[in-house]
């Protein structure tokens, strides 16, 4: 299995994500520039947090036009696993790979806090290593993490069991306490909390490791398995 960690100008969690998936979880992974046009040879694409292109217009609004995005859509359409974290989640909704949108937190303030969550669906490629309804704590660090979708979309999301992580104490006003959800096919997940910030006991906890272990498990035996 080989993972690509995308790097947009202004991404700032790309190195953290690479460290988590490669140095801690032990997968084969490398950084791929958003200026690149190919994702050939990768079994998993990770879209990191940060402020892509400064996020001056709207989070992720410019990033969706980056050269890599065409390849990313194709990769997802072909069933490849894509994980977007924080700004990565915002980019995936802007690009239409995930339903809904992320608005300003109801407090209108950036919030950095450890946040209690519940894993409400452990039948996905991103959560299969967590016990059902597992309570975990992951850090959040965002200004625009308030998940919104219209009523019909939301009903469909719930009916399809697309929600994977829910906040225990909703910090930002997200509808249905949604902290992370997949697309309908289940191969693309976006989440506002940062699992890559919770993979080492020294830094306060390892509750995020399960996300990467789940993906490694889901892609086991993939064509480009690490040597």
């Amino acid at each position: 299995m080989k993972a690509a960690v995308l790097t947009f100008p202004g991404s700032n969690c790309d190195d953290d994500l690479l460290w988590a998936v490669k140095d801690i979880a032990g997968a084969d992974a490398e950084l791929v520039s958003a200026k690149s046009e190919s994702l050939d040879g990768f079994d998993l694409v990770l879209v990191p947090g940060g402020f892509s292109y400064g996020d001056y217009l709207r989070s992720g609004a410019i990033a969706k036009f980056a050269p890599i995005m065409t390849a990313l859509k194709q990769f997802a359409d072909n069933g490849g696993y894509v994980l977007g974290i924080c700004n990565g989640f915002q980019i995936l909704t802007e690009a239409g790979l995930l339903p809904g949108a992320l608005q300003w937190n109801t407090s209108l303030e950036f919030i950095c806090e450890p946040e209690p969550l519940k894993v409400v669906n452990n039948q996905t490629a991103f959560s299969n290593q967590y016990p059902e309804d597992q309570a975990i704590t992951l850090p959040i660090a965002h200004g625009e993490g308030n998940y919104y979708a219209d009523a019909d979309t939301l009903a469909e999301i719930e009916a399809n069991h697309q929600v994977v992580f829910r906040y225990a104490k909703n910090p930002n006003g997200s509808l249905n306490d949604i902290a992370g959800l997949t697309n309908k096919a289940g191969n693309v997940l976006g989440m506002m909390p940062h699992p890559e910030r919770a993979v080492e006991a020294l830094l306060g906890g390892t509750d995020g490791l399960g996300v990467f272990e789940s993906l490694i498990n889901a892609t086991k035996g993939a064509a480009h398995a690490a040597n």
């Binding site: 953290d16 950036f110 950095c112 910030r197 830094l203």
Partner: peptide, 13 residues
């Protein structure tokens, strides 16, 4: 201080 990202770069103990 909760309005500051304190953990990016994942080295914050």
């Amino acid at each position: 201080y909760r309005r500051y990202d304190a953990q990016v770069q994942t080295n914050t103990v």
